[in-house]
């Protein structure tokens, strides 16, 4: 119970601070954010957009980890865990795509411009979609668990290409692309120009969203288990 209150406080603080703290040229007070050239007020999306993209990958990672566990132990509970993680991952993937597209409308002028990052989030959406399509096409439980576990592992090894390699070798508009003149190394935007208060809120937001993800994942997993039990009860009469 304590951690739920803790989570509430973190997320409330992040939402208020992320939206209302002013962006100024030379930050003096602790609640002022520095001005990042090329981003300006648009920079504030980092507190909400980046965590969703992060959770997309985390959801994928968890789904793959439980897939590997399933292939080792053949325990259907692991398959349910993997399924719950992927469901949440898909939800956050859609959120990241939509928030990114809305942000791009204001920062770049159009909702979609096939920037490498947009391509990669789109590819993640496709992977999730394909994964759920594969699951729905197989009736036998064990077979479905095995094949979707295998596919999730194969898909997972392509994720580094989308998330880490493509945005760094292709030119793009997203902060941190290969030709970003504000970060010559082509690294993430976090490495530069964020002051300590911005970093603090950014990491608090990441932590808060991750805990939220964990909570939702546990609820999803439990509801899957109850569904299973109810099904068995109904069949047995």
């Amino acid at each position: 119970m304590v951690w739920k209150i803790f989570l509430f406080i973190i997320l409330a603080f992040v939402s208020i601070a992320g939206i209302s703290f002013p962006i100024v040229e030379n930050p003096q007070a602790w609640y002022q954010f520095p001005l990042i050239p090329g981003l300006e007020e648009n920079a504030k999306i980092i507190f909400f957009h980046v965590p969703t993209a992060w959770l997309t990958v985390i959801g994928f990672l968890m789904s793959t980890v439980f897939s590997i566990k399933y292939l080792r132990k053949r325990n259907l509970d692991d398959d349910a865990k993997s399924y719950a993680a992927a469901q949440l991952g898909l939800m956050f993937c859609i959120l990241a795509t939509v928030t990114g597209a809305v942000w791009a409308k204001f920062a770049w002028g159009s909702y979609w411009s096939w920037d490498p990052r947009q391509t990669s989030i789109f590819a993640l959406l496709l992977i999730y979609g394909a994964w759920f399509a594969l699951r729905s096409s197989i009736e036998s439980e064990d077979k479905r668990a095995t094949l979707s576990a295998v596919y999730s592992i194969i898909a997972f090894v392509t994720v580094p290409f989308f998330v880490f390699i493509m945005p760094r070798i292709m030119d793009g508009l997203h902060p941190g692309s290969a030709d970003d003149k504000f970060s010559p190394s082509g690294g993430p935007v976090v490495n530069f120009q964020m002051n300590s208060s911005m970093l603090l809120i950014f990491f608090l937001s990441l932590i808060g969203f991750t805990i939220l993800y964990y909570w939702m994942w546990r609820l999803g997993y439990k509801s899957l288990l109850y569904k299973e039990k109810l099904n068995k009860k109904l069949i047995r009469g």
């Binding site: 391509t119 590819a123 496709l126 992977i127 979609g129 394909a130 399509a133 594969l134 096409s137 197989i138 009736e139 077979k143 094949l147 295998v150 596919y151 194969i154 898909a155 392509t158 290409f161 989308f162 390699i165 493509m166 292709m170």
Partner: peptide
């Protein structure tokens, strides 16, 4: 190999392959 064990073999193949092949194609 995955497809041969699943139902709806024909339609699922491009759907499953495209995300996996996307880095290669790009």
């Amino acid at each position: 190999a995955i497809i041969s064990k699943a139902g709806a073999k024909g339609t699922l193949y491009p759907v499953l392959s495209f995300p996996i092949l996307l880095p290669l194609i790009l």
